[in-house]
Amino acid sequence: MIKQALLGEFLHEAESTRKLLNAIPDSALEWKPSEKNWTTAQLASHIAEVYNWYEDTFNKDVFDMGTYQYDKGDISIAKNIVEKFEENVARAHEALNNWDESTAMNDWRMEMNGNVIFPPMPKIQVVRGFLFNHLYHHRGELIVYLRSTGNNVPGIYGPTADDNSF
């Protein structure tokens, strides 16, 4: 039952993420709001990468960032970021689909080189916070990036100011 609820949200939100990533023009990729922030390309690539964490989060009780490797590919073209997103979201969907939800309350933690980064917490809490909510947070940032660069923002939870049909 938990898995079905998560799958429904996952599919709906993946479509929203897809619309947002597809709205990024190449001309906005190098923009960043300050020296402390990522560029639009880096932020969009990170959003695509979050979907790459599903397999290890659902299938393991320890996510070792010390051994984690990810090839983000060429992020100088928005289309490439979307393609990486599509690859990652397909694998994430499979991981969620095949998940044994009886492990929902298993402790999960993140480590790096033997040091605990995220202390043990129930896997379901990690799925909601580390995977789902983390992604929503970064999508919100990306919306601000799009607005700040004069680009249109697609509707995610209803129409936006760019939707002239309302």
Rank of each mutant, 00 (worst) to 15 (best):
N106M: 11
L96A: 09
M110G: 15
I47R: 08
A5C: 10
A161N: 09
F130K: 13
I75E: 04
K60Q: 15
E49N: 11
V62T: 15
N133S: 10
E141R: 08
V89A: 10
G8S: 01
A23Q: 05
Y136F: 10
S16E: 04
V50F: 15
V82Q: 04
R91E: 15
A104R: 00
P122R: 01
Y157R: 03
Y157K: 06
T40P: 14
V82F: 07
H134L: 04
N115M: 12
Y68R: 15
Y136D: 01
D107M: 12
D56Q: 12
L43K: 08
L6K: 10
L20M: 06
P119S: 01
M110E: 15
P33V: 12
G150E: 07
I143T: 10
I117A: 00
S165A: 08
V89E: 09
F63M: 13
G150V: 11
Y51F: 12
M121V: 14
D64C: 11
D26W: 02
S27H: 11
N106Y: 12
P119Y: 05
L29Y: 02
I77L: 07
E141G: 05
P154S: 09
T67L: 06
I75C: 09
A92D: 04
V126E: 12
P159H: 08
V126M: 13
N133V: 01
A14P: 12
L20Y: 04
Y145A: 04
N59M: 01
T160R: 04
E86Y: 10
E83G: 00
Y145M: 05
M121G: 13
L131T: 08
S148M: 06
K79A: 06
